[in-house]
Design a protein around this nucleic acid. Structure first.
Lengths: 404, 404
DNA sequence: AAAGTAAATGAATCAGTAA
DNA sequence: GTTACTGATTCATTTACTT
């Protein structure tokens, strides 16, 4: 997927792009906090024509507005813009966006909430930033993301169908025998406008990286909400290039611009390097990343074992030995075929002199063709989820047979 | 403690107050939603409504600014204002407050975040409102509120004293024997600007039927942050009177104003007999609702399912249905016999009309004696760990046979 | 007492009609 | 086509009640 990075003023780059070419623009412009003072004191007149208020009042506002106008031009009719700002500038940004994209196309004020180390503050500890979401038109591309139910919700009740009683009050429907009626399956709660995403994920400490970069999950969410694979994404202030990395991992085209040569070379490096940790994070979501190891190994609950870090072939050793050597265990990973997983385990196991190994099979991924056969010393064990998957297909055929 | 309630336009009442008399003003004006809001009490005895339709943004802004100027006048030099608004008007409010109180006295943008019953949205589910916090001067009254540590924080470590090492890096101090030194107790983390407070529940007794009623807890927090006992608090749009109730409970003096006679009489009633419902959720935390633990649910990795938290018999519903009803799943818990687990699942499943249920068996706990037999509709599936346990005992006997 | 079930509801949102 | 209104419908949440 093509990723372009330009070292230039984004106004120039935007100007050279054709109209209606981009699906999404994310921008995180610099905040001229030192200028804010002048900004706010300039307007002494009491009239509320917000339209031209900032326009002439401030270089900063003009600076942004020039670029927003270009962004509006290059966005497709189905396109969206995400404007990242902190609490000192959110109202200015809002006004500018109302001007260029119209109040009517305001979609959401996203609150990115994170926990932070506190200094002793006189006041409330700042712990959020704002992302303004506008679309170019009312007919904008949007994919609903669903999240889990609150633990306090009775999921069994919301599976029930509802109707109106005589007084037109909403009640849960029942059939003539007084039994509850089920309506279709529920998949979860639509994503809200408050996103709790940790600033840095705990494991990121290991990386000697760029400390101020935005969490990739944040950009991932934005990309998934409003773009598809192959869509064009533009970041006019790309900085360390998080947007570009996310775009690459999710297979979106991207154009990044930054006026600083250092930022550009940084971005290039990040985009070119295979970013294993990032891609792992993206594939599984932040939650599962945090406890990916534990969740795979929870399959071993109740069996004494020692988890193994940093070994591609072996996830854990059982305490139980065979021929004096602890038994290596591996869990078949998502997307891996059984033979791939077995081969990987076998190689690592042999190097540890193991005579017996256990592979927990989680998926029936068909191997297209493979010369490798699972050796006898690798014992296959089905995971419960695999057994259930098989069961489900049996159940469906069982039902079919009832009708035929 | 004196609580006054005036049925009037707040501009009149504010105008008649002497300068520098109030310690805190909380206001919750109409939000510029361009709608009329109507709601009746549960018993349909009273109907409340207010009109939030304006000809233009500047009408709305002028209306507010007139009142803000008076509020600025009546606040003490140590006083503060909290302006409650939602996402449709937060930027207008911010500009007005910058004008009347100055950008310099902006203290915080508080995000009140809550969970809400949703409806089908094309977009992000709104789940927050904004409270803008300005002080009259830089010398404002403020009490730091401390909150608990997040569960991931290593509290032991926080209690350790810190010092600088040779390279001037911050390290945890140790005494001459290498033992850690404990500094004084830490009380918690300073309150952040994102407040998660549950919305008033549909069933809460505190509920009065007034639209937009705020939780008492929200107002209590604001009062505690910036006022002391005996201080004067003013709410120019008091509505159902939550501010006044909170003020009474915390022994602050208060003046409430509302233009609607119904709102005023409701406020009077509430102040006389305050009802405060404690949120079970806040008191005990979301975790207290959980009974399906994560490691149990991770056995279902890869199978679309919805976790069920408040049911002892069912841990999750599969997305797949049998006879139109999602299939309930349960994981045998530690120490439970298979028949116990199956019985529990069976009972709950039957009440949901399920015709097929799945029990994941994790242990061979022998049932001492039991009349109950696992019914046919409960399908048993072995977990991987159980399969491995069986395997291990086989392996041992296999090995034995080699030696004998 | 503890667990499970029922109820209430919207600073909602949507679809359809009228201007 | 666009905008503005109005009545209809929806959904997850969390307390209160019942078993």
């Amino acid at each position: 997927m093509e990723i372009e990075i330009h070292n230039n003023d984004c106004l120039e780059v935007l100007h050279d792009l054709p109209p209606s070419c981009a699906d999404m623009v994310y921008l995180d412009p610099p905040f001229f906090t030192q200028r804010e003072h002048r900004l706010s004191t300039r307007d002494r007149e009491m009239e509320f024509s917000f339209d031209d208020r900032w326009d002439s009042a401030s270089d900063y506002a003009t600076f942004l507005e020039d670029r927003l106008i270009e962004i509006h031009r290059i966005l497709k009719a189905t396109g969206s813009i995400f404007f990242h700002c902190d609490r000192t500038a959110s109202h200015i940004a809002r006004l500018l966006l109302d001007n260029t994209f119209s109040q009517r196309n305001f979609r959401a004020e996203i609150i990115w909430h994170y926990k932070r180390w506190s200094n002793s503050v006189r006041g409330l500890l700042p712990a959020h930033q704002t992302i303004l979401f506008y679309s170019k038109t009312g007919n904008y591309k949007f994919h609903t993301i669903l999240t889990g139910y609150s633990p306090t919700t009775n999921v069994d009740q919301i599976l029930q169908k509802r109707s109106r009683d005589d007084a037109n009050k909403s009640v849960y429907a029942r059939d003539e025998n007084g039994n509850v009626i089920f309506s279709g399956a529920k998949d979860g709660v639509p994503l809200s406008d408050v996103w709790e995403i940790p600033f840095l994920n705990p494991k990121a400490k290991e990386r000697t990286g760029y400390p101020t970069q935005k969490p990739i999950l944040l950009l991932e969410r934005i990309l998934q909400l409003t773009t598809d694979r192959g869509d064009l994404v533009i970041d006019p202030f790309c900085g360390s290039g998080t947007t570009l990395v996310a775009a690459r991992l999710l297979e979106r085209k991207a154009i990044g611009v930054d006026i600083s040569p250092e930022a550009c070379s940084l971005s290039r490096k990040r985009v070119e390097e295979p970013v294993r940790t990032d891609s792992h994070l993206l594939k599984n979501g932040a939650e599962s990343y945090r406890n990916a190891d534990e969740s795979a190994l929870s399959l071993l609950n109740g069996i004494p074992h020692v988890p193994v870090q940093r070994n591609n072939g072996i996830d854990a050793f059982l305490r139980v030995t065979f021929d004096g050597i602890p038994i290596p265990v591996r869990v078949q990973k998502y997307g891996e075929t059984v033979t791939e997983a077995a081969l990987s385990l076998y190689k690592s196991g042999i190097s540890k002199n193991a005579k017996r190994m256990i592979l927990i099979v989680t998926e029936d991924v068909p191997a297209l063709f493979s010369d490798f056969k699972v050796p006898d010393c690798v014992i296959l064990v089905d995971s419960a989820s695999l057994s259930i998957k098989r069961l489900i297909s049996n159940l469906s055929s069982e039902k079919e047979s009832l009708f035929t």
